[in-house]
Design a protein around this nucleic acid. Structure first.
Length: 580
RNA sequence: CGGGAUGUAGCGCAGCUUGGUAGCGCACCUCGCUUGGGACGAGGGGGUCGCAGGUUCAAAUCCUGUCAUCCCGACCA
C-alpha cells in the first residue's frame, strides 16, 4: 500500500477528549474516529488489526473444534422474556419497537438466540457435544462509556457457546477453551493471566477472566479491574470474587460489661475508634444497602470493606447500591428508632434482611451501633447482647497482605484489562427456555451449557495499552496492520525512490504486508508518522544509499542496522514467514 | 443518577470579565523553496460561536432553558 493513497489522517496533537493512552494513540495515529459517545468508526488501519485478531481467533477456535456461525444483531423481546432477562438486564439492554410495535433489542450477548438455535436443531445426544461461535458487533448501553475502545457501547466480540450432555463434558470443553484462549492471546502477542471471577448478569457458577496485566506505575493505566494473586501458588482472582485467609487481629474489645455509652460525632469508624481508644478491629460496622429494592444491613468488622458484588450475590440480586439517608430514616421509623448513618446496629431492626461477614463472628466484647444517634453499645457479645445474624457469608473485599486461601502466602494486587472470559452456565438458559435433547437412556435432558467471550476490539486496544512508547504504538508483529514501512527520505531523489520502489515491489511480490511512504513530505513527518502508527519494522532509504546501504529499524528496540537493499528485503521476508 | 468541568473551522485553543467587523497555531488548496525527526515564504478556502428562547439599536459575550461531551463516583461481559 502506498501511503499517499492510504486513508489515514494522523494528528499532531492528542485528542482533547481522550484519557487513556490507547484511546489517545488510536485516534491520533488515524486508526479510529468517534461517531457518538462510545461508538467508533474503525478506519482502514484499525480494520486490518481487527481482522488479524479475528483470524487468529478463528484459526484457534476452529482448531479447537468449534464452528463459526452468525446470529442476528437485532433480537426479539420474546426470547428475553423466556430466559427471564428482559426484566433483569436493565437499561444496558438497548430496547426498541419495530413498526408493528413489537419489542426488540440490540444484542448485548447471545445466550437466548443460541439456546433457541440449539432447541430447534439438537434433538439427540448423538449431536453433542457442540461448540458454536460468532464474531460480531455487540451493543450495550453502558452508563458511562469511556476509555475509547476499552469500554465502548458498541464493540466487537467473539462469543462461543458449548452444549454438552453432562457436567463432565462441560468441564472438558471449559478446559479446552481455557487452553485455546491462552493460545489466542499468546499469538496476539499478549501475556494474560487467567483469574477466577464473578459470573455477573450472565449467570452460572464457575467463571474465569483473562486479564492483560498493566503497569500500575503507568500514570494513565487503563486497568479497570483489581486482580489479587499469589506469588507462591497460582491462585488469582478478580477483586469481586477473591477470597482470603486473614492475618490474626485483635478482636476482643476488652470492655468488661455491656453498656450504652455516649459517642458524640463519631459517624465514621475512624472517629469512633479514636474516641473510644480501641482498634477498629473490635468494632462491628453496619452498612445499609438496597438490593433489588429491598433493604439489607450488612455487618462487617470495622477495618474491612464490603465487596458489593459478593453481597449482592449473597441475595441473588441484580442491582445493589448504598441506601440514601431518607431510606435509612424510613427503616429507623419502621423499627421505632431515629438514628442516622454511623450509629446503625442490627438490634431491633424491622423490615430489613441482616447479613454478617465472617469477620464479625469472632468478635468479643465489641462495639456496635444501637440505633441511637451519638451512642454505641460497647462490651457487646453475640447471643447475649445482640443476636448473630443467621446469614453469615464472605462479603468482604480482599486486601493486600491478606493470605492466599490456597497456600497462605501474602496476596498481592495488580490492575488488569479483561480481554476474555469463560463461564460455566450449566442449565440456566436451557431450563428457562426449555431446550432439551433425548439422552442415551431415552430421557429428556436440558443442555449443559458454557459460554466463552473475547473482546476483539478491546484486545486490540489492550495491546496498544500494553505496547507503546513516547513516539507511538508498538504493535505486536502478529496483529500489526502492516509488517514493514519503507521510507525514502527524499521523494525527489531518484536513486532513493528507485531503491524504495524496487524493494516495495519485491516485498509485495513475496506477499509481505508493506507500506511505502511515497508522500511528498519532509523526512521528519514521514519518520514521526512511522513511529506513531507503530509498524514493527521500518526501512529508511536515505544518505546511506551512497554506500549501498539502507537502514533497518526494529520499532520495538529502536535498534538500527545497516543492510544492503537485498539483505533488507530478505530479512523482512524471513521475518514475515515467522508470523503465525 | 449524584459531584465537577467544557462546548468558537477537521484538530488544538484565544476572545466572554467590561456587548459593537469572529481570531491564532496546526491541517487543507495554489505557487515558490526545501528533504535525516512534525521546515520556510507568499497567496487562498473553510464558522448560522452546541441548540432554543429572552434582554438590547446591537449578543460568541448578559439572562433562562435545553442538548452534547469529558472527568470522579455508583454500574459492568
Amino acid at each position: 500500500m502506498k501511503m499517499s493513497k492510504l486513508f489515514c489522517q494522523t494528528l499532531r496533537e492528542f485528542p482533547q477528549d481522550a484519557e487513556v493512552i490507547s484511546h489517545k494513540l488510536l485516534v491520533r495515529a488515524g486508526y479510529i474516529r468517534k461517531l457518538a459517545n462510545g461508538i467508533y468508526n474503525y478506519l482502514p488501519l484499525m480494520q486490518r488489526v481487527l481482522t488479524k485478531v479475528e483470524n487468529i481467533i478463528r484459526e484457534e477456535m476452529n482448531a479447537a473444534g468449534a464452528q463459526e456461525l452468525l446470529m442476528p444483531f437485532v433480537q426479539p423481546e420474546e426470547l428475553w422474556k423466556e430466559s427471564g432477562r428482559w426484566d433483569v438486564y436493565g437499561k444496558e439492554l438497548m430496547r426498541m419497537k419495530d413498526r408493528h410495535d413489537r419489542g426488540m433489542c440490540l444484542g448485548p450477548t447471545h445466550e437466548e438466540v443460541i439456546t433457541f438455535i440449539a432447541r430447534e436443531g439438537i434433538r439427540s445426544y448423538k449431536q453433542l457435544p457442540v461448540n458454536l461461535y460468532q464474531i460480531q458487533s455487540k451493543f450495550r448501553d453502558e452508563i458511562r462509556p469511556r476509555f475509547g475502545l476499552l469500554r465502548g457501547r458498541e464493540f466487537i466480540m467473539k462469543d462461543a457457546y458449548s452444549f454438552d450432555v453432562d457436567q463432565a463434558g462441560l468441564d472438558k470443553e471449559y478446559k479446552n477453551m481455557a487452553d485455546t484462549y491462552n493460545r489466542i492471546f499468546t499469538r496476539c502477542g499478549l501475556e494474560t493471566k487467567m483469574v477466577q471471577s464473578d459470573s455477573g448478569a450472565i449467570g452460572g457458577s464457575v467463571s474465569h477472566e483473562f486479564m492483560v496485566l498493566v503497569n500500575e506505575n503507568d500514570e494513565n493505566n487503563a486497568g479497570e479491574n483489581d486482580v489479587f494473586y499469589c506469588t507462591k501458588c497460582d491462585y488469582s482472582a478478580n477483586s469481586n470474587h477473591a477470597v482470603s485467609k486473614l492475618n490474626p487481629a485483635e478482636t476482643d474489645g476488652k470492655f468488661e460489661k455491656a453498656e450504652i455509652v455516649d459517642t458524640p460525632n463519631t459517624k465514621t469508624i475512624e472517629e469512633l475508634a479514636e474516641f473510644l481508644k480501641v482498634p477498629s478491629t473490635v468494632i462491628c460496622k453496619a452498612l445499609v444497602y438496597v438490593i433489588d429494592g429491598k433493604y439489607v444491613v450488612a455487618l462487617i468488622r470495622g477495618d474491612r470493606t464490603v465487596e458489593e458484588t459478593k453481597l449482592m450475590n449473597a441475595f441473588e440480586g441484580n442491582e445493589i447500591r448504598i441506601a440514601r439517608n431518607d431510606e435509612i430514616d424510613e427503616i429507623m421509623q419502621n423499627s421505632g428508632f431515629s438514628a442516622v448513618a454511623g450509629f446503625i446496629g442490627p438490634k431491633g431492626l424491622k423490615g430489613v434482611s441482616i447479613i454478617a461477614d465472617e469477620t464479625v463472628r469472632e468478635l468479643k466484647n465489641f462495639v456496635v451501633g444501637i440505633n441511637q444517634t451519638d451512642k454505641h453499645l460497647v462490651g457487646a457479645n453475640w447471643g447475649k447482647d445482640v443476636e448473630l445474624p443467621e446469614k453469615i457469608c464472605d462479603i468482604r473485599l480482599v486486601e493486600t497482605k491478606d493470605r492466599c486461601p490456597v497456600c497462605g502466602e501474602e496476596l498481592k494486587v495488580t490492575k488488569g484489562i479483561e480481554v476474555g472470559n469463560i463461564f460455566q452456565l450449566g442449565t440456566k438458559y436451557s431450563k428457562a427456555m426449555n431446550a432439551t435433547f433425548t439422552d442415551k437412556d431415552g430421557t429428556e435432558k436440558s443442555f449443559i451449557m458454557g459460554c466463552y467471550g473475547i473482546g476483539v476490539s478491546r484486545t486490540a486496544a489492550a495491546a496498544v495499552e500494553r505496547y507503546h512508547d513516547d513516539f507511538g504504538i508498538i504493535w505486536p508483529l502478529s496483529i500489526a496492520p502492516y509488517t514493514v514501512v519503507i521510507v525514502p527520505v527524499s521523494d525527489v531523489d531518484e536513486a532513493q525512490m528507485g531503491c524504495a520502489n524496487k524493494m516495495y515491489e519485491e516485498l509485495n511480490k513475496a506477499g509481505v504486508e508493506v507500506l511505502l511512504d511515497d508522500r511528498s513530505e519532509r523526512a521528519g513527518v514521514k519518520l514521526k508518522d512511522a513511529d506513531l502508527i507503530g509498524i514493527p519494522f521500518r526501512v529508511t532509504v536515505g544518505k546511506t544509499l551512497n554506500e549501498g546501504k539502507v537502514e533497518f529499524k526494529d520499532r520495538k528496540t529502536n535498534e538500527i542496522t545497516l543492510l544492503t537493499p537485498d539483505e533488507a528485503v530478505n530479512k523482512i521476508i524471513e521475518i514475515s514467514k515467522t508470523i503465525k
